[in-house]
Nucleic acid binder design. Structure first.
Lengths: 215, 215
DNA sequence: GAATGTGAATGCGTTCACAGCG
DNA sequence: CGCTGTGAACGCATTCACATTC
């Protein structure tokens, strides 16, 4: 049943499924079933089938899923059947690492602009691109068709940078700064806090060596 | 009631709460209530109280939470009351960006080693550290007290790198490679797939411009 | 026969609303 | 009186089990 709502937890898994399918493709598999996808993705088959059923009926009963076809459908659902264009805001170490990260192009996202507030950095040439001023965000985004902003500025500057890109019309933001930023309700924001991830791991390390209570 | 299980969703929010408390500290707040934490963290007050109640009773009814005290408790729960030591595996662009990322030290995690499989990179000096061989993981981790591995190698090498660090005794892994890696059940693994995050954003961009069905 | 797609059952997480306490 | 801490209600996500389809 192809209805018009996909649960957020399902959406989070779709990129994983697509990655697995692309891998299957590279291994010259033509067909795959829910068990196969589940194994590659690290879930269970029922989950895979339920997730995919929110999108439509892309499988063949008794057979499984056509790898190419399902990959194409997922790409379309994820909106990467035509390349998405992103801009990096904040040309520090993390920003420049992401700018040249090869894993984006392969997966439907292209970094087409790099912005910074620091006039000393503006004008720097990087990998066939030039760092531009965040003040010109609106023109740059319009010119390059940017739809996603990747914020890699220091925490103190995160809200300012966010406001600028929102003002420039961007509706999707990935924020690497460890700060809670506010966005209008029509803007989608995702937080990528690496230190928080490490703290979560650290929590689990505590649990491993003998249970501890409050103390 | 300080019982012995904290739901995973709660654990994910604890680092956010801690970050908010540190911010409150820096603003010289002595007390904060659940509403205040919720606003800073971007949740609601009931959620905050419920989450904190899994850890114990750290508030004062009619008053709120002592900022310093609660921060200290959260640090302990997150296992960062004494610094956690991490190693970066894969000295590419992302690895080197993370190696010098200032946001770790402030939040209880220190990068104390950088490893790589490429013998050309081994020996490179970086920021008072030297890139070492992944073959020596065991000795290095023992010497430096490494408990967390941050994997920043290419996808193809991710499983190999993971196996090496697991063999070296690490029980917590943050994997930036966009590949599903297998770990023994006593090892905690978290996936940090930046491209997947962008794809999730892209999905939502689709939803924004007019509903689309299967097609 | 084999594997999908899906209602129904179960389990979790969030929200509500208020009792309990400083 | 105000705010925490928490059982109970609710809603969402996962799992089960099977009818359906190729």
């Amino acid at each position: 049943m192809s209805e018009n709502h996909v649960p957020p937890t399902t959406v989070q898994r779709l990129p994983v499924y697509l990655r697995c399918l692309l891998r299957a493709q590279s291994q010259r598999m033509a067909l795959i079933n829910s068990v196969g996808i589940a194994e590659m993705a690290g879930t269970n088959a029922a989950q895979v089938r339920k997730d995919l059923s929110y999108l439509g009926e892309y499988g063949t009963r008794g057979v499984g899923y056509d790898v190419d076809e399902l990959a194409a459908h997922l790409s379309r659902w994820l909106g990467i059947d035509t390349e998405r264009r992103a801009a990096i805001v904040g040309f520090g170490r993390l920003g420049s690492a992401l700018q040249s990260y090869p894993g984006f192009e392969d997966r439907g996202v292209r970094v087409v602009a790099v912005l910074d507030a620091d006039s000393a950095k503006v004008g720097t040439a990087v990998d066939g691109m030039t760092v531009e001023s965040i003040e010109d965000a609106k023109e740059i985004f319009a010119r390059e068709g940017v739809e996603i902003a990747i914020i890699t500025v220091p925490s103190e500057a995160a809200q300012r940078a966010t406001d600028k890109v929102v003002e420039a019309g961007v509706k999707a933001i990935l924020n690497f700064a460890p700060a809670s930023v506010e966005v209008p309700s029509d803007v989608v924001l995702r937080q990528a806090d690496v230190a928080a991830e490490l703290q979560i791991l650290s929590f689990h390390l505590n649990r491993l060596r003998g249970a501890r209570s409050t103390r």
